[in-house]
Design a protein around this nucleic acid. Sequence first.
RNA 1: GGCCCCGUCGUCUAACGGUUAGGACGCCGCUCUUUCAAGGCGGCAAUACGGGUUCGACUCCCGUCGGGGUCACCA
Length: 465
Amino acid sequence: MKLLEELEQLFVTPALATNRKVVVRTAPSPTGNLHIGTARLALFNYLFARKHGGKIILRIEDTDTTRSKKEFEDDILESLRWLSLSHDEFYRQSERGSVYQKHLLRLIKEKKAYLSREPSQSNPAVEIEVVRLRNQNRIISFEDEIRGTISFDTMELGDFVIARSLSDALYHFAVVVDDVEMGVTHVIRGDDHISNTPRHILIQEALGAPRPVYAHIPLVLAPDHSKLSKRHGATAIREYREQGFLPEALINYLALLGWNPGTTQELFTLSELIKEFDLSQVHKSGAIFDIEKLRWFNREYLRRLPPAEALALIGNALPEAIKALPHFSEERLQKVAPLLIERIAVFSDIAKLVKEEELQYFFERPAVAPEDLAWKDTNAATIAEHLQYLCEKLGDIPEKMFTQDTVREAIFGYATEKGRGAVLWPMRYALSGKKQSPDPFVLSGIFGKEETIARLTAASATIAK
RNA sequence: GGCCCCGUCGUCUAACGGUUAGGACGCCGCUCUUUCAAGGCGGCAAUACGGGUUCGACUCCCGUCGGGGUCACCA
């Protein structure tokens, strides 16, 4: 036991000096659109590097040519850009075959690896010559920034395969060679790589390279505690983008998933995150992705959006059917926008409102059901009387002065005197045709004098029948 | 199954030997109000379990249970 530990000490390569410039990498495989979990890892790498004035390498790990697709690479790049997660250098592993080969050859020459002729696993009929690493079968331990010391017995790994052939390096080898060649100082990746780490260290030591600092971040989990996958709903950043989530909200939410600044602050801009971020505050256990909290963040950012920007985004999310309605206009939409913002968390919620017919009445005269016009047991004659009065009273307001405030001023006394419910409910219902809607003053302000009076008159006519 | 990692409200988390175990999301209630939304106020709700160590454990140690990861010529 003791001997084993001493033996181990002999082989331990010191971690990279901390005074070296920080170099991190985010290394997605283009086998799917940018995943929420990958984006979060990219974010952690980004925050760490930017905080320490380091360099960020984006490396596309496409050594598996059958599963890798250009369209996924495009999506990854585009999604990262959308999230504002920039990088400083870009590589594709598929373009680095000669680099891997060079190191493979060297290792073989130094007898640290060897060629082995054996039947192909995919096609046992043919023999191929794979490259295996000479494993010294010892205990590897490393310091993980998140978990502390982790030890593995690498015995059961055996002389594992590092390349399918001299010109076809496998993932583990490519990763280690790249990290070495690119001068990566901090490997910040998902904790599903913990058990790959001893293998990487073995390769690294064979290469005679220094050991980077490892930080294994716990994974993002689905509500059922399993790995977040498609059956749990949207997993790609693109889908959230398409649903109308704001990148700032996504960033903020993802940052707080497994990390916190140790204060109760929850809303952070990217640059605040850079300032606050610290690997030592990263949690050890996996965090469940909670769409409700993401929606809350999104709403917070939605409300902070400059009005012009919000308006443009609402315009994008608004179905064509609404834009085709008779009273639709940009001016009208501009007035409705603040109401909308108050009622949605994500832009895709607009489609839901439309489906529930919560928006139509802003842009076309609503159908009014006489039986719904009455507040409690107010009788028809009284309602008609109130509506009549409202029309007259509002008619006295000059068109230019017709706003939610002047309308309120004009009729609030009357409403208070006659019973607010008895006056205001029919007024609001007449304007919206809905049992639930914004208040009648706000609606009047949106519709303007002519349309407001027209709707009140129409409702009044309905009740007269 | 072997190996590795993890375990505070339903969820994200604070507390790093001494707190009535705090905050946020969600949920519920109240309030504002003609209705809805938003807002304000409040409530429900957790240290997985069992042993130690200690004057004192969410915090340290051991075990149990539970969860996750990984065991490729995928990444």
